[in-house]
Write a protein that binds this DNA or RNA. Structure first.
Length: 479
RNA sequence: GGCACCAUAGCCAAGUGGUAAGGCAGAGGUCUGCAAAACCUUCAUUCCCCAGUCCGAGUCUGGGUGGUGCCUCCA
């Protein structure tokens, strides 16, 4: 497959030497619910992972859970986000972490995102961080200053890997509202270990050769990745905003520690934005999956919405756009349903199967072109292939897309269950009343009293159902 | 101020030098007491603008314009 690599700014052929592909994902800082923008990134990473598995690779994927060390600023200032969350909710840091980690993976389940095989809370690997930091100091890549340990970026021949910044220009380019940490030799340097007394109120502290304290944000990903996935990493994923400083710093540490090239591909997912710009957890009030569900959008509708766009494009989130995706998704299900209900035996047309599968594989093979991959479902539906072939192809594509196409087509069919004469209405408190109304309406129609029939239809609509006449009887559709 | 990315219909979007896919929405039709559903038809002489290269440009080059992101909180 071809995959865009942020490191080279090019689409490159992804052809790992080994059959086992290693993939690392920056997990969430669990101080609050994930919002739909965060989730977009994980959905797209899920497609990457499942596509690689679909192609026959074995995948080994690890993710961290940041439950310590993520400050609101990266210098010797700022507060720990976890601590802030704990204060806000009057709970301990560990309780907060536990709660939001659960919520995070709950969203994964709802969105059919595969949970990585290896999930490591940052607090569980403190000794590894200390080992790496000690080694970095020994090799001359890190120094102690003002009680903290910093990474010395001046020791690197190239620090800014994702942009064309020149280190000496940075002073010019630096944002004005950012405070300077006077302990740093260079503004580019970043903290590996904090021991400053300002964190005395911190619940989580660990002893280290440099004093009691806790790790900086960037070290956890390097340490977990190297330990779990080895010194060579195939793909590192994350949101674009992490390219700098987080990923840049990860590369600096990891390569200084390993003494050579570390990760081949950097997969960065662009942001979801709303009317106000980028969605951001720290801005607060961001939209969560549960909110969408409360508003009547199933998680699959959101997943479909994301797949219709491309991961390297900024996607604008608006409710009309989501309605669009909902209509498209439901219409798609309604076109799949007859294929499932069709009980006539038909053989699988192997040629047609191969042809459509090839189109699907090549769509995703071109830098994960998910909207083209979705189009290939429509091409299958429109084709002259047998029902069995179509169904088989859709099930096959859904191994990667994970839109629950078959399962939801069935429940979609049930949700607008046919109510033939005498058939029961499925469990619902109002069923008797509904049944009587439908019978009355049918009688009115028979008597050609259409005004009365329409009145009853309006009444049923008020109860939350649309009545539709079909050749066989009446169809009730939940609104 | 520096760096990067993006610009195709109302919206999402394909397109990788050969004459604008697909989806949703919209319009018209068939069917229906009317609706709904389903099906059929339709929907960009043009791809932000201006120059250039080429037989040929949405695609390549240069210059604009607009949007977005990053420049120590973010997926």
């Amino acid at each position: 497959m071809k995959l865009y690599n942020s490191l080279t700014r090019n689409k490159e052929k992804f052809s790992p030497a080994e059959k086992t592909v290693t993939m690392y994902t920056c997990g969430p800082t669990v101080y609050h619910y994930a919002h739909v923008g965060n989730l977009r990134t994980y959905i797209m990473e899920d497609i990457l992972e499942k596509y690689l598995i679909y192609l026959g690779y074995d995948l080994k994927r690890a993710m961290n859970i940041t439950d310590v060390g993520h400050l609101t600023s990266d210098g010797d200032s700022g507060d720990d986000k976890m601590l802030l969350g704990a204060k806000r909710e009057k709970k301990t840091v560990l309780e907060i972490a536990e709660f939001y980690t659960q919520a995070f993976f709950g969203d994964f389940e709802k969105l059919n995102i595969k949970k990585p095989d290896i999930v490591i809370p940052a607090t569980s690997r403190i000794n590894d961080y200390i080992d790496i930091i000690s080694s970095l100091i020994q090799k001359g890549y890190a120094y102690e200053s003002g009680g903290n340990v910093y990474f010395d970026t001046s020791k690197l021949s190239k620090y800014f890997v994702f942009s064309r910044h020149l280190a000496e220009n940075l002073e010019v380019g630096v944002r004005e509202d950012v405070g300077r940490d006077q302990n740093k030799k260079s503004p580019n340097d970043f903290v590996l270990w904090f021991t400053k007394s300002k964190f005395d109120s911190q619940e989580l502290k660990w002893p280290s050769p440099w004093g009691t304290g806790y790790p900086g944000w960037h070290i956890e990903c390097s340490a977990i990745s190297i330990k779990e996935l080895g010194p060579k990493l195939n793909i590192h994923c994350g949101g674009v905003d992490n390219a700098f400083p987080h990923h840049t710093n990860e590369i600096a540490q990891s390569e200084a520690f390993l003494g050579g090239h570390w990760c081949d591909f950097w997969f960065h997912v662009r942001h979801l934005k709303d009317e106000t710009g980028k969605m951001s957890k720290s801005k607060g009030g961001a939209l969560t999956l549960s909110t969408l569900v409360e508003k009547g959008y199933s998680p699959m509708v959101y997943r479909f919405f994301c797949l219709m766009s491309h991961y390297r494009k900024v996607l604008s989130f608006t409710f009309p756009a989501l309605d669009n995706a909902k209509a498209a998704y439901e219409k798609l299900l309604s076109r799949i349903l007859p294929l499932i209900e069709d009980k006539t035996d038909s053989a699988i047309d192997k040629e047609a199967f191969k042809f459509h599968k090839a189109a699907f594989v090549s769509a995703l093979g071109n830098d994960l072109n998910t909207s083209l991959a979705v189009t290939s479902i429509y091409d299958v539906l429109k084709s002259g292939a047998t029902g069995a072939t179509k169904l088989c192809l859709i099930a096959d594509f859904d191994k990667v897309l994970s839109l629950d196409l078959i399962k939801n087509a069935v429940s979609y069919g049930e949700s607008q269950k046919l109510i033939e004469s005498g058939a029961e209405i499925s469990a619902n408190g109002a069923e008797d009343e509904l049944k009587i109304l439908i019978e009355k309406r049918t009688a009115a129609k028979k008597a050609k009293d259409f005004a009365a029939a329409d009145k009853i239809r309006d009444k049923i609509r008020e109860m939350g159902y649309a009545v539709e006449d079909t050749a066989d009887g009446v169809r009730l559709k939940k609104l």
